[in-house]
Amino acid sequence: MKDWYLLYCKRSEQERAVINLDRQGVECYYPQVTVQKVVRGKRVEAFEPLFPSYMFVYFDPEVVTYTTVRSTRGVANFIRQGAVPQVVQPDLIYGLMVNEDSEEQRKKLSHLPQPGETLKLSKGQFKGIEAIYQEPDGEKRSFMLINLLGKPVKVSVKNEDIRNK
Rank of each mutant, 00 (worst) to 15 (best):
P52K: 11
P52D: 12
P52Y: 14
S53E: 15
S53H: 15
S53G: 07
S53R: 11
Y54S: 11
Y54D: 10
Y54P: 08
M55S: 04
M55N: 03
M55I: 10
M55A: 06
F56A: 05
F56D: 02
V57R: 03
V57Y: 00
Y58D: 12
F59Y: 11
F59D: 05
D60G: 05
P61R: 09
E62N: 14
E62I: 06
E62A: 11
E62F: 09
V63I: 14
V63F: 01
V64T: 02
V64W: 04
V64P: 08
V64R: 01
T65W: 05
T65C: 04
T65E: 01
T65N: 07
Y66I: 09
Y66C: 04
Y66F: 15
T67M: 13
T68L: 08
V69G: 01
R70G: 08
R70Y: 10
R70V: 15
R70W: 12
S71N: 15
S71Y: 14
S71L: 14
T72G: 05
T72Q: 03
R73D: 15
R73E: 15
G74L: 12
G74A: 13
A76E: 14
N77D: 14
F78C: 13
R80C: 10
R80A: 11
G82H: 06
A83P: 00
V84A: 02
V84D: 03
V84G: 00
V84E: 04
P85Q: 10
P85L: 05
P85A: 10
P85V: 09
P85E: 02
V87Y: 01
V87S: 06
V88G: 02
Q89F: 09
D91F: 01
D91C: 01
D91K: 08
D91Q: 06
L92W: 07
L92H: 07
I93L: 04
I93C: 06
Y94D: 11
Y94E: 13
Y94A: 08
G95Y: 00
G95W: 03
L96S: 00
L96F: 08
V98S: 08
V98C: 06
V98Y: 10
V98D: 06
N99E: 07
N99D: 04
E100F: 01
D101P: 00
D101H: 10
D101W: 05
S102N: 07
E103R: 09
E103Y: 09
E103A: 08
E103P: 02
E104N: 03
R106F: 03
K107R: 14
K108M: 10
K108W: 11
K108Q: 12
K108H: 11
L109D: 00
L109K: 06
S110I: 05
S110Y: 01
S110E: 06
H111T: 14
L112A: 04
L112T: 03
L112C: 02
P113F: 09
P113W: 13
P113A: 14
P113Q: 14
P113E: 12
Q114W: 06
Q114K: 13
Q114I: 06
Q114T: 13
Q114P: 00
P115K: 13
P115V: 10
E117V: 07
E117C: 05
